[in-house]
């Protein structure tokens, strides 16, 4: 069986359900709109800031402020792409058609990840430029040191969040269970762990905390993070690999229920 056939089939699957469209559009709109709003607010607040705060003022990172919420829609996208197969029973038809489970999972993840990457990159660039437009005289330029890396990194970050969700959903199978774990984890738990002093050392190695380092251009003054932007993204990639490998191993071993 040619993998190309399976990739085509997975593309048909992903484009023929409404959830693909609404999760991705939500991710785009929320990320950009919230980024613009917070950029506009930051511009007004700049004059009242202390010198210390001004020194760590990071216009690029501010324009990505919508990503914390926008990534939740990306998580829903990633979870649904995989767990839909199980919740609808389609998995039996799918695996009867493509019994090589590695080919099946990798084709599905490849198609969904490629789509997520295209949308995320467009979102990241749009969020950056529109956010900078809101920041007025405090804005950063795409040619500034580290800015292009941060914008490309923003696209990669969102894509990796989606892929991580796909891996987790492949392990858990149930959409409710997957969302019930991922949503509060990324929206609350990770932030709490990352901001409480006692748990900060652990929290900064969580996938979203480590991965979002790539979007920072100006390092905060008291920053003691033990990795740089690419190091952080590398940590996130390790998480993603673990989730996908876990999903693959379980899919391979389990009966298709």
């Amino acid at each position: 069986m040619a993998a190309a056939q399976v990739v085509r089939s997975e593309w048909t699957k992903i484009r023929s359900v409404a959830s693909t469209m609404w999760t991705l559009s939500l991710a785009v709109v929320v990320t950009i709109a919230l980024g613009m709003l917070i950029s506009a607010l930051s511009r007004n607040e700049f004059d009242g800031m202390s010198t210390r705060d001004r020194l760590s003022f990071d216009p690029t990172f501010i324009s990505f402020a919508g990503m914390g919420l926008g990534q939740l829609a990306m998580i829903v996208f990633g979870v649904l792409v995989v767990s839909n197969e199980y919740s609808t029973g389609m998995i039996r038809a799918s695996l009867a058609a493509v019994p090589r489970r590695g080919t099946f999972l990798l084709s599905k993840l490849a198609v969904a990840t490629a789509l997520a990457l295209a949308v995320s990159m467009a979102t990241s660039f749009a969020a950056f430029f529109l956010g900078q437009a809101m920041l007025g005289e405090h804005k950063a330029s795409i040619g500034d040191d580290g800015v292009l890396r941060a914008v490309l990194g923003g696209g990669l970050y969102m894509t990796l969040i989606a892929l991580f969700s796909m891996g987790v959903a492949a392990m858990l199978r149930s959409p409710m269970l997957s969302l019930g774990i991922l949503m509060p984890f990324f929206f609350l738990i990770s932030n709490i762990l990352g901001n409480v002093d006692a748990t900060k050392k652990v929290g900064q190695f969580l996938p979203d905390q480590a991965g979002s380092k790539i979007m920072q251009v100006v390092t905060p003054l008291d920053d003691d993070t033990p990795y740089g932007p690419w190091g952080g993204l590398g940590i996130m990639v390790l998480w993603v690999i673990a989730a996908v490998v876990g999903g693959y191993v379980l899919l391979k071993r389990r009966d298709a229920q």
Binding site: K13, S16, V17, S19, T88, G89
Partner: peptide, 14 residues
Amino acid sequence: GVHPGRSAYNHLLC
């Protein structure tokens, strides 16, 4: 085993 949101045609096509 059919996704309820997918049309019969697309189900068979994939």
